[in-house]
Design a protein around this nucleic acid. Structure first.
Length: 580
RNA sequence: GCGCCCGUAGCUCAGUUGGAUAGAGCAGCGGAUUUCUAAUCCGCAGGCCGCAGGUUCGAGUCCUGCCGGGCGUGCCA
C-alpha cells in the first residue's frame, strides 16, 4: 500500500527526533484542493508542540529529509501552516488505476472481514398494512449495507422480523372481521384502536364476493419454504364469521396476515430488496424461546417479581427503570419476545448483528443492550442504527401518517410515482441519522433534474462512446500502462485521481455504516467524467495513442460507476432516451 | 422535567472522524452544441456554519450553557 510506504518513510525520518511508531498516528488524506497534491499529512502540526518546534520549520526539515522512489512519489512539498504534501508520480497513479480495474486487485484486497457472518435486520414492519414510505428508507439503507459488508468480505445476511403474534395482529383480525360484517349489513362494534384503512375494506369486500377464490389466490403467493407457516385458515369467510368471537377473529387475522405479508414481500421485491430470512415471531412462541430466554435471565439473577409481573433489572444496565417481561395477567411483553429473538439470532451463529430501527425506538436501545449483557453476549455484538424520521411533503405541506387511521403514503405509490431507483438514490444521499424532507411533488415532477440521472447518464454516455468506437472499427484494448501513459489533459488526471479512491470509499462507507458516501462519490466521478468528456471532445478523432488512453480511461470509469450503482442497487443503463 | 437526534447558501443536503480559501444539487443570472445523446460543460451571484463561551498551532466538526425544531419517556408494539 502506498500509505504504508509513506508512513514508513516518514517514521524513518522521525526517529532522529526521538519519535517512534507507537508515539504517533500518521494521518494521510486527500486534500480538498487539487493544487495541494494527492496526499497530505498534518504530522508536523501535531508534533510541533511536543518537540517545541515551529510546525512549518519542522515540516521543512522532514520534507527535505524524507526520500521515496521517484517513480512512486514525484514531489514532497510543504504548504500552509506546516502541511507536507505528496504528489504521486503519474506512473504510480496508473498502477493504482489498473489495480482498481483488475478483478484480483484492490477490490479483492479490501475483503478483509474473513467471511464472518453478520446479520442485518431492517424494515421489520408490523404486518398490519401495506409498507409505507418510512420503510423505503430502511430498505435502501439496509440492503446497501448488506452489499457493502459483502464487499469488504463479510458473509452478510438480510433479515426481516415479522411480528405475527400479539395484540396488533389480534386487532387486525378483529378489524377485518368488523369490516366484513359491516358489509353484510350487521350491527358491529368496531374495535377501539382498530385499523380503519381502506385496504381492509377492500380486503373484506374480496372475501365477501370471491371468498374461497380470494383465499386460494392469497395462499398461492406463499408456496415457498420460508412462508410455510403463513397458511390459510380452514373453511371460508362465511364459516369463520359464525365461529365464537375469538376464534373467528383469529381466522380473519390469519387471512389478513397472509394477504398483507404478500403485499409487503412484493413491495420489497419491486424495491430490489432480497431477504435471506423472514423470521416469524410466532415461531419464537411455538419453540418456547421466550420461556428459555426468561429462564436464562433468571439464572443470571437478572429478573424479579413484583405486583404480579416479572421484571428485568435493566436499571443495572444504565436504563432509567426496570422493565416488565411478563405482565400480571401472564402474557409476555413485546420486549421479552424481542430478547428471545435476538438471543436466538446470537445462537444462530452470527458474529455481529446490525438492527435498523426507527427514531421512535431509540429509548428501547438501552434495555435491549442491557438484556444482551445479562445474557452474557459480548458488548457491541448488537449494533443498533437509528434511521431518523422522513417528512413527506405534498403541496408544501407535511403529510401526517397514521397506520390505524389508514392515512399514509405507501411505498408502492412512491415506487410508482417516483421510481425505485430515484427513491433509493435520494435516501442514500443523506446520512442515516439526519432528518429529511422529501418533497413528493419535486421528486415526481422534476425527476429529470435529479442527480441520479447525471450518474446514469455518465454510464450510458461511456457505453455510447464505446459503441461508436466499435462501429468505426476502433478496437479498445485492455487498460495497460503503456497506453495510459499517454493521458495528458488535466481533466484526465483529475479523473484518475478520483477513480483510484474507490477501494477506500467502499471500505470507509462499510465501516462507518454510511452508504451515503457512495452516492457522493458517484456524483463526483460522473462530474469529472463529464468534464473530461467535454474538454477532450471528439476522442475518436485523436491520434491512436491518445485515443486509446482515453478509451481505456473510459472503460475503467464505466466499471467504477457500475460497481457503485450495483452497491446502491440501481440500474446502470447502456443507453438513455434522449430528452425531446 | 429527563434522554436521544437535528440547526450549514432562497430550498434539500454534503463536509474525508480537528486541517489549508466551507461544497454539491435545485432555484436565479450569463455563456458554450456542424457531437461520440446539451439528461452535459464553463462562468457569475448567493454564508455571523442557530447564539455565547471554552479547549489549541487550527473548530462547521470536541466540551459547557442557552435558543429553536423533531422524537421518545406504557404491564403498547
Amino acid at each position: 500500500m502506498l500509505e504504508d510506504l509513506l508512513r514508513k518513510g516518514l517514521l524513518t525520518v522521525l526517529e532522529k527526533y526521538g519519535v517512534f511508531e507507537e508515539d504517533v498516528q500518521i494521518e494521510l488524506e486527500k486534500p480538498r484542493d487539487r493544487s495541494h497534491g494527492d496526499l497530505s499529512t498534518n504530522l508536523a502540526l501535531m508534533l510541533g508542540k511536543r518537540l517545541g518546534r515551529k510546525p512549518r520549520e519542522l515540516a521543512g526539515e522532514i520534507a527535505a529529509d524524507v526520500s521515496f522512489p521517484r517513480d512512486v512519489i514525484e514531489s514532497v512539498e510543504i504548504a500552509g501552516p506546516g502541511f507536507i504534501n505528496f504528489r504521486i508520480a503519474r506512473q504510480h497513479q496508473i498502477d493504482l488505476l489498473l489495480d482498481v480495474w483488475n478483478p484480483e486487485g484492490a477490490l479483492q484486497d479490501i475483503r478483509t472481514a474473513g467471511h464472518k457472518r453478520i446479520n442485518v435486520e431492517f424494515i421489520s414492519a408490523n404486518p398490519t398494512g401495506p409498507l409505507n414510505v418510512v420503510s423505503a428508507r430502511a430498505g435502501a439503507f439496509g440492503m446497501t449495507m448488506v452489499r457493502l459488508l459483502e464487499a469488504v468480505g463479510y458473509d452478510a445476511h438480510a433479515e426481516y422480523y415479522v411480528n405475527d403474534a400479539g395484540r396488533q395482529v389480534t386487532l387486525l383480525g378483529q378489524s377485518l372481521r368488523a369490516h366484513y360484517l359491516q358489509l353484510l349489513g350487521e350491527e358491529v362494534v368496531f374495535p377501539e384502536e382498530g385499523y380503519k384503512g381502506q385496504y381492509l375494506e377492500i380486503m373484506a369486500a374480496e372475501l365477501l364476493h370471491q371468498d374461497e377464490a380470494a383465499i386460494r389466490a392469497a395462499s398461492a403467493a406463499f408456496n415457498d419454504e420460508s412462508f410455510q407457516r403463513v397458511a390459510a385458515p380452514p373453511g371460508c369467510a362465511n364459516d369463520w364469521r359464525r365461529l365464537p368471537d375469538d376464534e373467528s377473529a383469529r381466522c380473519f387475522s390469519k387471512y389478513a396476515l397472509m394477504k398483507i405479508l404478500g403485499w409487503q414481500r412484493e413491495t420489497c421485491r419491486r424495491f430490489g430488496l432480497r431477504f435471506d430470512t423472514w423470521y416469524f415471531e410466532s415461531e419464537l412462541h411455538e419453540t418456547k424461546r421466550l420461556d428459555r430466554a426468561l429462564e436464562r435471565l433468571r439464572k443470571q439473577d437478572a429478573v424479579y417479581e413484583e405486583d404480579g409481573a416479572v421484571w428485568f433489572k435493566s436499571s443495572t444496565h444504565d436504563d432509567e427503570k426496570d422493565r416488565v417481561l411478563v405482565r400480571a395477567d401472564g402474557r409476555p411483553t413485546y420486549f421479552l419476545a424481542d430478547i428471545a429473538y435476538h438471543y436466538h439470532k446470537f445462537q444462530r451463529g452470527f458474529e455481529h448483528a446490525i438492527d435498523y430501527w426507527g427514531p421512535d425506538h431509540h429509548g428501547y436501545i438501552q434495555r435491549m443492550q442491557g438484556a444482551m449483557a445479562a445474557l452474557d453476549i459480548e458488548p457491541g455484538w448488537l449494533e443498533v442504527q437509528i434511521l431518523q424520521h422522513v417528512n413527506f411533503l405534498e403541496g408544501g405541506q407535511p403529510i401526517k401518517m397514521s397506520k390505524r387511521a389508514g392515512s399514509f403514503v405507501t411505498m408502492d405509490a412512491l415506487i410508482d410515482e417516483v421510481g425505485a431507483d430515484v427513491t433509493k438514490y435520494i435516501f442514500l444521499t443523506r446520512k442515516p441519522n439526519s432528518h429529511l424532507d422529501f418533497d413528493l411533488d419535486l421528486a415526481k415532477d422534476q425527476t429529470e433534474k435529479n442527480p441520479v440521472l447525471k450518474v446514469k447518464y455518465a454510464h450510458a454516455r461511456i457505453c455510447s462512446l464505446l459503441n461508436e468506437a466499435a462501429s468505426r472499427g476502433v478496437i479498445v484494448g485492455e487498460p495497460s500502462p503503456a497506453m495510459l501513459a499517454h493521458l495528458e489533459h488535466e481533466a484526465e488526471w483529475a479523473l484518475v485521481g478520483e477513480l483510484i479512491r474507490l477501494p477506500r470509499i467502499i471500505v470507509s462507507a462499510a465501516w462507518a455504516r454510511e452508504p451515503h458516501r457512495l452516492t457522493g462519490y458517484a456524483d463526483d466521478i460522473a462530474a469529472l467524467y463529464n468534464e473530461f468528456y467535454t474538454k477532450c471532445r471528439r476522442i475518436l478523432d485523436q491520434p491512436e495513442e491518445r485515443r486509446q488512453s482515453q478509451l481505456q480511461l473510459s472503460l475503467v470509469t464505466r466499471r467504477v460507476i457500475k460497481v457503485l450503482l450495483d452497491l446502491i442497487g440501481i440500474d446502470a443503463p447502456e443507453k438513455m432516451e434522449k430528452r425531446d
